[in-house]
Design a protein around this nucleic acid. Structure first.
Lengths: 155, 155
DNA sequence: CACAATTAAATTGTACGCAAGTGAATTTCG
DNA sequence: CGAAATTCACTTGCGTACAATTTAATTGTG
């Protein structure tokens, strides 16, 4: 009874504002990150989502599209054209898996591999821009991971 | 001397992972929020950014495009087509300001105003999906606002 | 007053992000 | 074994994001 009532119960004004601020805070911070990365990534000719793909590949130089999608929470509708652009700029190579012709294996080219050394420069710059201590960063990250888990579970 | 060295100092492996996780955590949580909102917003025929614009207008029913852009951190390149769609669905009206013909005043139609009552339903659903206490939500929001401020200041 | 600088919104072009649909390869199961 | 279901990547269509440009209106300055 009580649980059912909660569903239809009026939200206090206070809570409305708070909810609004949290979803918007995440939305706006994501944009702020993208903008902060942009001048740095422009120098190496990457967009922010492309940089995330490269981060994944710098950890493991050869992965199927599906795995990259799972790690970044992106589907092939987003990744296919993005990977095509990374291939055109010569950072990655795409080959059909001989053992499973449905799969496409994405691998780093020498040029893509050598770019890994620039990752440290990029991270230093962003780390300074964020202006948080390691502890703060870890705490926010942890909270967001929990929040994201909840949201994904709800869908 | 020391400060200058910090700029070129090598980042420990630990910190690299952490930084990666924070920027990605924000990025992925933003997507998770959009996805969590989607089934709910589909019912009222709004996208998530359109919902944010409506939230702003439900607070103040009449605003110039520029002000909406400042509150949501979006430029006219994003807002112009978005507002055009909201006008086509009959939720808002756009009129040139007579006192300054450069400005366009966005205002709620009766239909747009009446939709405000659905905001509470939407927020309840998302609040439950987020599965956080009010304290947690407030804490994350606060951290993100600080982080966003730092990132914006750096650009 | 006049003309340069500034401002507001819209437009253009590029790149996501995602739903829905397509086509080819593989798996499952009757 | 072989048809049906599933899986993987690609494509299409729509809606953001944002840089850069354009157009019109206003402000600032000489």
């Amino acid at each position: 009874m009580k649980a059912q009532m909660a569903k239809t119960m009026e939200i206090p004004q206070e809570e409305r504002r708070l909810e609004k601020q949290l979803c918007f805070a995440v939305y706006a911070t994501a944009h702020a990150f993208t903008r902060a990365y942009k001048p740095i990534l422009d120098k190496v000719g990457l967009t922010y989502p492309q940089y995330l793909v490269m981060l994944v590949l710098w950890e493991k130089a050869e992965l199927p599209v599906k795995t990259i999608g799972e790690q970044l929470d992106l589907d092939s509708g987003t990744l296919s054209p993005l990977l095509k652009r990374l291939e055109q700029t010569g950072l990655i190579k795409r080959t059909r898996d001989a053992r499973d012709e449905r799969q496409v294996i994405v691998s780093l080219t020498p040029k893509g591999r050598s770019m890994k050394s620039e990752a440290a420069t990029i991270m230093t710059a962003i780390g300074q821009a964020a202006g948080c201590t390691l502890e703060e960063m870890a705490e926010i990250r942890g909270s967001l991971q929990k929040l994201r888990g909840n949201l994904n579970a709800a869908v």
